[in-house]
């Protein structure tokens, strides 16, 4: 299969410390690939290496199936768009003038400016100087610049950083629409796991520079089983009964967490506990969120 981005053994070392270590990414065409990890995990460095902004210490990068070298980098990147960390802009110029510069560099037609302004809904603000824009507008302008030339591949590093909840929702909708409407493949990084859940189809999780999971979001959810939360007034009795029946469980404060099971099996456990006087007041099936999955994979909490 020809991947849009493929990296093999990608490393970046600063001094003695690895910022990214043997990172192997595979991004299939037409997906929204969520690149997850806590702050400092190596997401931005990896994306910068893909774009040739940072020189890798070791490893190979392929974009559109072609190995990227300093010689062919600009040519290959012609079909990509990017928004890395904070937006890039000339504050003394208007939004349209900023896009005009990018358009000239990319060598695309002038009418594309109107199209991308429409996509990011900035038509009404195009004649305003960018230094007068809000952060959300600057982010949208950054996305418009990335979209110029209808690239096949888009790399967006933390595009929702600093946006208010409405702005985050708007950006999320825009990004998730791109593959369907414009046939683009999107790689988007974030440390906000919850927002990824609603936006991406594939996921790569990086922690301390190492890839710890890569695959579809669906499979990740499947892999991470849920649990049955039981609240019993008489917890001691409940624990005794579960021990007697060799049931697996974990005490979580006043609750007991049992492995996920079918509805029939849930009914059996509840009946058994109630019959022995455990005094059940609450039973709940818990699905693991991405945060829980991340916690299970890395053993530490991620910032939200």
């Amino acid at each position: 299969m020809k991947y849009m981005i493929e990296t093999n053994g990608l490393c970046k070392k600063y001094g003695d410390k690895y910022s990214v270590k043997k990172c192997s990414l595979k991004i299939r065409p037409g997906c929204v690939y969520g690149f997850l990890g806590p702050n400092g995990a190596g997401k931005s460095t990896t994306m910068k290496m893909i774009l040739g902004l940072v020189q890798p210490t070791a490893g190979e990068i392929r974009i559109f199936g072609e190995e990227v070298t300093e010689r062919n980098r600009i040519e290959i990147l012609r079909d990509t768009g990017s928004l890395i960390e904070s937006p890039s802009y000339y504050g003394h110029l208007t939004g349209r003038e900023n896009l005009e510069i990018i358009r000239t560099l990319k060598g695309v037609s002038r009418k594309e400016i109107d199209e991308v302004l429409q996509i990011v809904r900035l038509e009404g603000q195009q004649k305003k100087k960018v230094r007068e824009y809000s952060l959300g507008m600057k982010q949208r302008l950054g996305l418009a610049a990335a979209l110029l030339g209808r690239p096949k591949l888009l790399l967006l590093d933390e595009p929702t950083n600093g946006l208010d909840p409405a702005g985050i929702q708007e950006m999320r909708d825009l990004i998730s629409d791109l593959p369907e409407h414009y046939g683009m493949t999107v790689m988007v990084s974030s440390h906000l796991l919850s927002e990824m859940d609603q936006m991406v189809t594939d996921v790569g999780i990086i922690d301390k520079g190492k890839m710890i999971y890569q695959g579809s979001l669906e499979k990740l959810h499947e892999q991470a089983k849920g649990s049955l939360k039981v609240h019993a007034l008489n917890q001691g009795t409940a624990v005794r009964i579960l021990d007697e029946h060799r049931e697996k469980y974990r005490i979580d404060g006043a609750d007991l967490l049992l492995p996920e099971r079918s509805e029939r099996e849930v009914a059996d456990v509840v009946t058994m506990l109630a019959a022995e006087g455990a005094q059940i007041t609450h039973v709940e099936m818990q699905q693991k969120s991405l945060e829980d999955i991340f916690l299970a994979l890395t053993g530490r909490q991620v910032s939200l």
Binding site: K48, L51, L53, L77, I84, S88, Y90
Partner: peptide, 15 residues
């Protein structure tokens, strides 16, 4: 203008 606007990371993907 390039420093203030963080534009190098965008420009250096095109030139």
């Amino acid at each position: 203008a390039e420093i203030k606007g963080n534009t190098l990371k965008l420009l250096c993907t095109m030139e």
